[in-house]
């Protein structure tokens, strides 16, 4: 771990200016991912700017939705009664991630920005285009059980590890950002980017831009929503696949839905094709499988020395069907 300087400015504007001024500066939030990366040598900043004391830590009603300060701890967000009642998919996603201790540390702004848990990305002795652009991708042809089946490129097959981000993707959240040039708001679905030929960039945020809040719109369909995370061991593990889903059924027809996948792409994967297939359909395993098939039509599994990840296609199909089946039953 190389030496670095540390600053704890009094306000967000100063923090943004401090990071923007140095190419090797980084924001430090809960630290659950960045401190890990410092120790692994994955990140080598020269300056850490601590934003834990200055980001808003409140959750406020916002035109029927919720404005969540970027400093709100994951544990506090999952415990909020409004989130539990109106956005259960978000509470479940948060609670299925990491451990009690980590959820006490991790923040609303930091969680969606955590970086891939690709084994090779985290191991500085192997080539990785995300960590060291142009060095190659050791994951391709390696151990690929946890890697992407959607939206990958020849340069990177990593997956996004956040559970929370999958729920936010399904919920049409907005992200409020403060940068050196002022504030801007973007749709959560625009935050993350596919790897393409620049996998070193996880998001569209520019250097020095800081997430200050995440806003959940009023979304009646979300009252009946759930997050289903599939993993080998029962807790404290990243998803092999996950499904965030919300379902509204009126007179035996699906009138609205939200579906997003985790563990299968470089981004939380909003399944709009699946949503289109579901609209107007009668809730049934046939319809759910058709929705999955539409979304996974372009899925490209990876071979690997560990057997690869082709299993994710049937696994995700069946997980989606099971999740929607349970939600449809809740409806009835």
């Amino acid at each position: 771990m190389r030496p670095f300087d540390y600053q704890a400015p009094a306000d967000a504007g100063t923090a943004v200016a401090a990071v923007a001024a140095r190419p090797d500066a980084a924001f430090l939030g809960g630290g659950t991912n960045l401190v890990d990366h410092l120790r692994l040598g994955v990140a080598e900043p020269g300056l850490l700017v601590d934003v834990t004391g200055l980001l808003p830590t409140g959750i406020s009603d916002d035109g029927g939705g919720l404005r969540i300060g970027a400093g709100v701890a994951n544990a506090d967000l999952a415990a909020d009664s409004r989130v539990r009642r109106h956005y259960p998919v978000l509470a479940r996603a948060l609670l299925s991630g990491a451990s009690g201790q980590l959820r006490n540390m991790a923040t609303t702004g930091g969680n969606p920005l955590q970086r891939t848990r690709c084994l090779y990305f985290q191991d500085v002795t192997t080539p990785c285009n995300k960590r060291s652009p142009g060095s190659g991708c050791a994951a391709i042809g390696g151990a690929t059980r946890q890697h992407a089946i959607l939206g990958a490129s020849e340069h990177c097959i990593a997956t996004h590890p956040s559970d929370m981000a999958v729920a936010l993707s399904a919920l049409d959240a907005q992200v409020e950002v403060l940068g050196p040039d002022g504030e801007r708001t973007l749709a959560f679905g625009e935050l993350h980017r596919l790897p393409g030929d620049a996998p070193e960039r996880d998001t569209v945020l520019e250097h020095g831009e800081l997430i200050t809040a995440i806003v959940l719109p009023p979304l009646p369909v979300a009252a009946r929503s759930d997050y289903r995370k599939v993993r080998d061991r029962a807790s404290y593990a990243f998803a092999l696949v996950s499904v965030a889903a919300a379902l509204e059924v009126t007179e035996c027809r699906i009138t609205d839905s939200r579906v997003a996948f985790g563990g299968v792409a470089h981004t939380p994967w909003r399944a709009r094709r699946a949503e289109r297939v579901l609209r107007g359909a009668t809730p049934s395993d046939e319809a759910f499988h058709a929705a999955a098939a539409a979304e996974l039509a372009d899925a490209r599994p990876q071979d690997g020395v560990d057997g690869g990840n082709a299993f994710k296609i049937p696994l995700l199909t069946r997980t989606l069907a099971g999740t929607l089946r349970d939600l449809a039953r809740q409806e009835a």
Partner: peptide, 13 residues
């Protein structure tokens, strides 16, 4: 008063 991981906490913070 809150349980956290001391290894991922920089002392300076």
């Amino acid at each position: 008063g809150v349980r956290v991981l001391a290894c991922l906490t920089l002392a300076v913070t």
